[in-house]
Nucleic acid binder design. Structure first.
Lengths: 350, 350
DNA sequence: CAGTCTTTGGAGAGCGCTCTCTGCGGTTCA
DNA sequence: TGAACCGCAGAGAGCGCTCTCCAAAGACTG
């Protein structure tokens, strides 16, 4: 009935909805926010008016009064990389692992009506900027993905009392919940596999030993071997890149030409390590068995395909989202961290 | 002098700044927004007050009156994937290419003070939801990354008149600027390389022929070969995945066992194609030369490493950001699309 | 039937900001 | 000397929403 529904060119406001429905703004607001104290007939009228006017709430206005924003920040924290020739944002973005995290997060956040804002902290200035933004209350919560163990952000975020969840245990302890996979258990799976195949001189291409996850993988692997009665484990450190894996494998092989098994602490490093073995005349898996970690694309891309320890990345990211939602809904509550159980994916390399 | 600076627990407001500086709210606002009509002395006072109170503008309040949001949406549009066992958000996120796009975008958007909101449209419902969100004016602009040629989103976005930039030419024409690489020129580089090496029976592992980019690569390659006097080009279609590349390579090789060169329309497919050749007893590059496309991680991961056509993904993403900024700053202006020139990266496979 | 309680709807303040309008003091020009 | 103008600062409206407070109307009790 064209009650002069709304001004031209602008989206409908709550005022418009109320006028069309013939109620007050307050009542329209109640309907929109699902408050129970509205008569059924009026509720229907308002709902029709909403459809008629194609109304959607203005988030800025709502946010101004509720101090909620219905959005969370996904903060990617990387070590400064000034020295690199390419001045682009660090390697995490080009890591498929990151994409899987995003995917798992969105899957939970989207149905909850939360938008995800992407932020990067890769030097002192950007860290300060990100922190200022977060402190100012522009988001309801933070998911922090940090790639370096000496990152000060976890502690700084803990001080802000903003709901926060970390991807992986932080390098320096912080009073924030995190989600990770049981690294030691994963390493144990790898050890058991290699030993069950009768291998006895087993090496490790470990990750950077300043990262907790890398430490635990190495430590867990050695512990498991010892428990299985296989002593004296040689290892070499890589940097979680393909090239680094190849380099570490070369060193390992040079020192222990007779090895018949290798645990590589990431599939990407495995992608570098396997060709080194092949070029040195070792057949995989006949002469040397290789077990990776992550179950990433790289594991399937490897030739032969890597037997590997799987971490359920998307599920873990989903859990992070749920932990964050809980903190947002129950302010003050700090849910416990969650540790996922890894599994072994058997392919061709061991 | 502790002028009762601000209420406890809440961030400082413009009011607080004005009070501390001893000016009106309007003047403080002028300083913050860089208007020139402020006396230097007052300006300094206000700036000191800003530092003293640790003030940062409330975006919601600002956005409410300016109708700007200082944020843009990065919309990822994927074909519905209900049939997949894993109910997770599609493959684009786990594609390193996507990460490089994000990296290039943020590099431009961050200094411009724009936040980036990540959104996914992967079925009818989410598409409607995303569109409603965008229409409601929650962002100042949109970067659309679409993976399927029959995507209706470009046209729908064009109708909203919201500043928009597309990653790659849309399947169905739309009046929106896009950024892409000159696919034909890239294919020509590949053709020239293979022919220069004396290869004469050259096949193509093409991409999905319903995608414009894939069509143009195939078309450009055949055209270039024809121009070089190398006729009769066999080709097989893959789906831009590693497995698809392997499968297409098998078919190609079965039909043309004597081929001595292959143009693979993406590095990822190359990663699948090369092992097929090797297992069939062909040496790469001695017996068969292989040229890929993209210069992605996969090219380096391949064994031997792929000679490939490089597209400057990060630079292209940066250009997208700049085109978007221009539209935001000059409403109504629709800048022309930008086509980048590819280059050839010579490695070991050809 | 008066008095009390419960449900429901409306009025209106106020979130923090921008921006137009107004006004003041000083300069320039006829 | 008066008018016109300019640079600069303040007053105040209003962006769209939520939410508290209050009033009206009905339901129930003594």
């Amino acid at each position: 009935m064209a009650t002069e529904a709304r001004r031209p060119g602008r989206p409908a406001t709550l005022e418009d909805v109320a006028r069309v429905a013939g109620v007050s703004r307050a009542t329209a607001s109640r309907v929109i926010n699902g408050l129970p104290t509205v008569d059924a007939a009026l509720r229907r009228k308002v709902e029709e008016a909403i459809t008629a006017t194609d109304y959607a709430p203005n988030r800025a206005a709502r946010s101004l009064v509720t101090r909620r924003t219905d959005s969370v920040a996904l903060v990617v924290s990387e070590r400064e990389q000034r020295h690199l020739a390419t001045p682009f944002i660090g390697r995490m973005f080009s890591d498929p692992h990151f994409g899987r995290v995003v995917s798992g997060l969105l899957r939970e956040l989207r149905p909850a009506g939360l938008q995800t804002v992407l932020m990067v902290a890769d030097d002192e200035a950007s860290r300060a900027q990100v922190l200022a933004y977060l402190r100012q209350g522009h988001v309801d919560g933070v998911v922090l993905v940090s790639s370096h163990p000496d990152d000060p952000l976890p502690r700084m975020l803990a001080e802000t009392a903003l709901p926060t969840v970390l991807a992986g245990r932080p390098g320096r302890a912080a009073a924030l919940p995190y989600v990770e996979v049981d690294q030691r258990a994963g390493a144990r799976l790898a050890a058991e596999r290699l030993v069950a195949q009768g291998r006895r001189l087993i090496g490790t291409v470990a990750g950077p030993q300043d990262m907790p996850a890398a430490q635990e993988r190495l430590d867990g692997f050695r512990g498991a071997l010892a428990a299985l009665g296989v002593p004296d484990l040689p290892w070499a450190e890589g940097d979680f890149t393909r090239a680094g894996g190849a380099e570490a494998m070369r060193r390992l092989l040079a020192g222990h030409p007779g090895l018949d098994g290798v645990f590589v602490a990431s599939d990407l490093m495995g992608l570098g390590a396997v060709p080194v073995l092949l070029r040195a005349g070792r057949r995989v898996p006949q002469d040397v068995g290789v077990v990776g970690f992550d179950d990433s694309e790289a594991a399937e891309a490897s030739e032969p395909a890597l037997t590997t320890v799987r971490q359920p990345v998307e599920d873990m990211a989903g859990e992070m989202a749920r932990l964050l939602l809980r903190q947002i809904r129950e302010p003050g509550a700090v849910p416990p961290s969650v540790v996922f159980r890894p599994s072994l994916v058997v392919r061709d390399s061991a």
